[in-house]
């Protein structure tokens, strides 16, 4: 039908090449013998070994992982509440405020979110003495605030497509709203919650700017350590770290993809 599908497809191929060329080059050079990242001097896995001995990077990774898990869990709870309220409750007082505060963090520049959170924490510490100092707690709170918005959007789009008649039937039969939510709604939106958890986890693990604003001494996240080492120049250890991350994400996405295809096949 379309006269020149080949044009569209070559542009498609170009797009994918653009997206993946840098990632491929990162992985290839993580196996490079030379410290000069871009001069090939033979195959070696020594940067992976030295990465495993880099206590600073490993410590930061552990801090980041703990923050990311806490963040994802809290964000899923709060985001689900927000998404449910927005889709299922019709008009209520505060709805437009909630909708705006869910939508705005999606596009708000990181520097503003980070600065805003830090200034709040400073003002709160002055007024009520909490949070005392800044560290993992303040980073987590700041992360939850923007990642719950992403969860809310995912839950929203899932709930919109959900047939309300199942919930209505349960309600007609006398189930209380909370019970309806936990027994009927929650299992139906579980895939959206899982996706939301993973997204919130990744967003937290990935964030440099907001963490830099809201962190204190002793709480350096992985991106903060990577950033300071990247500013000093390229280092093959970072390449090794990047390759491991890409590997883990690819594995996760392949598994998710297989599950999704199976589900689609079951549905047919």
């Amino acid at each position: 039908m379309m006269r020149r599908p080949s044009l569209v497809f070559s542009l498609l191929a170009f797009g994918y090449a653009f997206l993946y060329a840098p990632i491929v080059s990162l992985i290839v050079y993580s196996f490079n013998e030379s410290r000069l990242v871009t001069v090939w001097a033979g195959f070696s896995t020594k940067w992976y070994t030295s990465l495993l001995q880099n206590e600073q990077l490993l410590g930061a990774a552990w801090v980041s992982l703990r923050i990311a898990v806490m963040n994802a869990t809290l964000a899923v709870v709060l985001g689900t509440l927000a998404g449910t309220a927005l889709v299922r409750f019709g008009r209520f007082r505060g709805r437009s405020a909630l909708a705006l505060m869910v939508g705005a963090p999606l596009v708000m520049p990181d520097v503003i979110l980070g600065l805003a959170s830090l200034l709040l924490f400073v003002a709160m510490e002055q007024l009520i003495g909490w949070p005392a100092g800044r560290g993992m707690t303040t980073i987590t709170i700041a992360h939850v605030t923007f990642s719950m918005a992403y969860v809310a959007v995912i839950v929203q789009s899932r709930l919109v497509r959900l047939d309300p008649s199942l919930e209505e039937a349960a309600m007609d039969l006398g189930a209380r709203p909370w019970k309806v939510f936990f027994v009927i709604t929650l299992p139906l939106i579980a895939p959206a919650l899982a996706a939301g958890w993973l997204l919130a986890f990744t967003l937290s693990l990935d964030d440099l700017v907001i963490a830099s604003f809201t962190s204190g001494p002793g709480a350096s996240t992985l991106p903060m350590v990577v950033y300071s080492s990247v500013r000093l120049g390229v280092s093959p250890e970072i390449n090794a770290l990047a390759s491991i991350m890409v590997g883990l994400v690819t594995l996760g996405i392949v598994i998710a993809g297989v599950i999704m295809q199976r589900r689609a096949a079951d549905a047919r």
């Binding site: 840098p22 990632i23 080059s25 693990l205 990577v226 950033y227 990047a242 996405i253």
Partner: peptide, 14 residues
């Protein structure tokens, strides 16, 4: 889903 920082870092090497 892979780190934003690391994707930008990749371009430095290129």
């Amino acid at each position: 889903w892979t780190s934003f920082l690391i994707r930008i870092y990749a371009w430095i090497g290129i």
